[in-house]
């Protein structure tokens, strides 16, 4: 592979690679632009601090919350809920989704329910969950599971179904039994896609977590945002949003690394 060159022609060619240093430079540049614009409109007084805090207000608030342990307390509460909900959902959806994509009989049985459930907005279930399970951690975990489980199932079944038929045929002619097909062929063949599906649905899990925390919770980043809104502490809301963004970024990279490690053959 030729190494990407830096010329006007190269960087304006559709789909052409650009040099690595340029990727890093541009990645930093976007944040410089965002923070500079933010600084410009806040320090100039264009927008009052009550609605949009200055960057240094957010930074000092964050430092204070790190010192008194509040940030850690609520971040770990959120992470815990997302983690439990995501793992519970995935542990069932991965095998079930693969079976659904492999065996038409499983698909025919589950499809009507799954397709009904996945178009229902999870938020409409929240009042029901609160009635049934209260406002403890179980309620938030349930919201996350309902939010991502059926979506995971559909995507996983699709990915299993798209395993090339001749790959399975080749396995048969090499002595693979039909009963072993799911775990010996469909699972490894789908592995890169499985990690991508988990990565994407992890992002959705964060969204549903915040929804659940905004509605009914006593801890978590969504909860402190809501509390901050009542006290007009916009800087706290900013801190919480930034924290969720950073956690999202970390889990996203984590899944990319995991995929690289578990499926090194996939480019």
């Amino acid at each position: 592979m030729k190494s990407p060159s830096f010329s006007f022609r190269a960087i304006t060619t559709p789909f052409e690679q650009i040099p690595k240093w340029m990727i890093v430079f541009l990645g930093v540049a976007i944040w410089v632009v965002v923070i500079a614009s933010w600084s410009a409109i806040t320090y100039s007084g264009m927008i009052t601090e009550t609605f949009l805090p200055t960057p240094d207000m957010v930074v000092s608030r964050t430092l204070k919350y790190i010192q008194n342990g509040v940030l850690w307390e609520h971040t770990s509460a959120s992470v815990q809920v997302v983690f439990i909900g995501f793992v519970l959902s995935s542990v069932v959806s991965v095998p079930l989704g693969l079976f659904m994509g492999t065996y038409r009989i499983v698909q025919a049985f589950l499809d009507p329910l799954v397709n009904f459930m996945r178009y229902l907005p999870v938020t409409s279930f929240v009042p029901l969950f609160i009635l049934w399970i209260g406002i403890g951690i179980e309620q938030r975990v349930t919201v996350i599971i309902f939010g991502i489980f059926f979506q995971q199932l559909v995507m996983l079944a699709d990915t299993a179904r798209s395993v090339p038929r001749d790959l399975v045929n080749a396995a048969y002619t090499l002595g693979t039994s039909r009963a072993h097909t799911v775990f010996h062929i469909v699972l490894p063949a789908s592995l890169p896609n499985i990690f991508d599906i988990l990565r994407v649905t992890m992002g959705w899990a964060w969204t549903y977590l915040v929804v659940a925390e905004l509605v009914a919770a006593r801890s978590g980043l969504g909860y402190i945002s809501l509390k901050a809104m009542r006290g007009f502490q916009v800087d706290v809301i900013f801190m919480a949003i930034a924290m969720i963004g950073i956690l999202g970024l970390i889990t996203d990279q984590g899944f990319r690394l995991l995929r690289k490690y578990a499926a090194p053959w996939a480019l």
């Binding site: 080749a170 048969y172 090499l174 490894p188 053959w265 996939a266």
Partner: peptide, 20 residues
């Protein structure tokens, strides 16, 4: 009646297991 290892096959499509 069924596929079996005593009848090996090479396909037109590439069918190596990509994970191996």
């Amino acid at each position: 009646s069924d596929p079996g290892p005593e009848r090996g096959m090479v396909f037109q499509a590439y069918t190596l297991f990509p994970w191996l």
